[in-house]
Design a protein around this nucleic acid. Sequence first.
DNA 1: CGGAAGTCGTTAAAGATTTCACATACTTCA
DNA 2: TGAAGTATGTGAAATCTTTAACGACTTCCG
Lengths: 219, 219
Amino acid sequence: MDIEQTKIPQATAKRLPLYYRFLNNLHTQGKLRVSSKELSDAVKVDSATIRRDFSYFGALGKKGYGYNVEYLLSFFRKTLDQDETTRVALIGVGNLGTAFLNYNFTKNNNTKIEIAFDANDERVGSEVGGVGVEHINDLEEKLGDISVAILTVPSSAAQGIADRLVNAGISGILNFTPARISVPSNVRVHHIDLAIELQALVYFLKHYPLNEGEVEEDQ
Amino acid sequence: MDIEQTKIPQATAKRLPLYYRFLNNLHTQGKLRVSSKELSDAVKVDSATIRRDFSYFGALGKKGYGYNVEYLLSFFRKTLDQDETTRVALIGVGNLGTAFLNYNFTKNNNTKIEIAFDANDERVGSEVGGVGVEHINDLEEKLGDISVAILTVPSSAAQGIADRLVNAGISGILNFTPARISVPSNVRVHHIDLAIELQALVYFLKHYPLNEGEVEEDQ
DNA sequence: CGGAAGTCGTTAAAGATTTCACATACTTCA
DNA sequence: TGAAGTATGTGAAATCTTTAACGACTTCCG
Ligand SMILES: NC(=O)c1ccc[n+]([C@@H]2O[C@H](COP(=O)([O-])OP(=O)(O)OC[C@H]3O[C@@H](n4cnc5c(N)ncnc54)[C@H](O)[C@@H]3O)[C@@H](O)[C@H]2O)c1
Ligand SMILES: NC(=O)c1ccc[n+]([C@@H]2O[C@H](COP(=O)([O-])OP(=O)(O)OC[C@H]3O[C@@H](n4cnc5c(N)ncnc54)[C@H](O)[C@@H]3O)[C@@H](O)[C@H]2O)c1
């Protein structure tokens, strides 16, 4: 496998799944070629940034032509490991957890929520979105070799569950609780803090007024 | 009002709500003072970054002492406009929309979802999490002067609804759909793309192995 | 009261990311 | 075939962000 491809910048890495998705759309639409400019319009990322991002992987395009959609797509499919499915566990089948289970990130995706856990006896044993809900007491026993977890428990339970996940050998946690959890340095946590996202948007609206001439930016 | 406080960096602005929340926690716990180091441990942001962030607002702390929790909190309350509630509309009362309505970002927050819209006649007229659901046809009529919208409709409907929101005078959209919507330059859109967040986490896990000695980072 | 310990605010350095701008090479079409 | 057009890949510059380091001042405690 392509080990150590001389470190892609993090900012680039975060955009890769986005590129991949739009490339997929183009492919489905039957498009054969695409320029960085077109892609830029679609994903709202500066075209120079896109070219730079792609260039980290070598020369994927052709001057005067652009990029071959099929080739680019198959390249990213490999790069993003789209062929092997990553199995995911979800902890906390409440409002948010239920939404995720019903959605299950199914479309053009290499991840699948395979098992869910909850502390509420009424939920345990049921199925949500085709995923069975187990009791949190059985976490260690039933997690198996799943290495990624989505955390949607009440924030008061977050650190405790995180500790247990770490003990059970998890590698990555997508944390939706407002709690900033502590984990050993070999475990990766991404926080998605929805309340903060909303507050930040409100703050930007009040303090960074956009002019009729500026271009809006995301995230 | 504190107009033009000589532009806070965006990276700092995004952390303010996080600081505010933890300050609030400390205050509730009865803590009187806090150092940048303590805060750093709690929010997982480097202490130098925290001091730098605070310094954009002037000298809020005292050398050798730290920060007075009450003072800092009340300062941020003003800065983040925590006293005036921002009214928010939610479009698309499906899996995700329902979760948000039930949650409603109630705790220590200056935002409130006041009205929801959906196209499904069965949902219209009902209440979810105490918020009435209106028909999407009545969007323009019932939106009033609400300036922020959360978009949780199917991605195929996203651009169309966004256009209508813009026409109805919206200023900011928190977009949860995978569609990258186009809006005039005076409207701000923040994308929260959950599928991409999950894929990015998986990518990082495979390609950026963490060593036992490194410290994990978020987002 | 005085010295040790603690902590800020900031200068400066380092690091990361974006953007510009253009030489280069391919495509297209007459 | 050759001229005009197009769009990449990248060096260099600009911008933004983080981190280290430390002087200045405060608190703490014997
Ligand atoms: N719902 C939202 O829109 C929203 C928005 C922002 C943040 N969040 C955060 O996401 C998290 C979940 O929110 P929610 O609205 O889904 O809450 P919820 O109360 O609806 O769901 C939490 C679920 O976790 C289960 N649970 C509780 N303790 C547990 C434990 N120890 N082990 C396993 N399961 C346990 C509960 O039985 C419940 O089903 C919370 O931390 C919340 O702050 C939610
Ligand atoms: N649920 C998730 O976990 C999840 C995860 C990632 C992304 N998303 C994205 O979030 C969006 C919503 O997801 P969901 O799972 O809640 O979908 P959903 O199908 O459960 O909900 C969509 C809702 O929008 C309503 N709707 C459809 N067309 C409308 C229109 N024109 N105007 C107003 N309302 C309309 C539907 O009646 C439905 O209630 C989708 O774009 C999805 O891709 C969802």
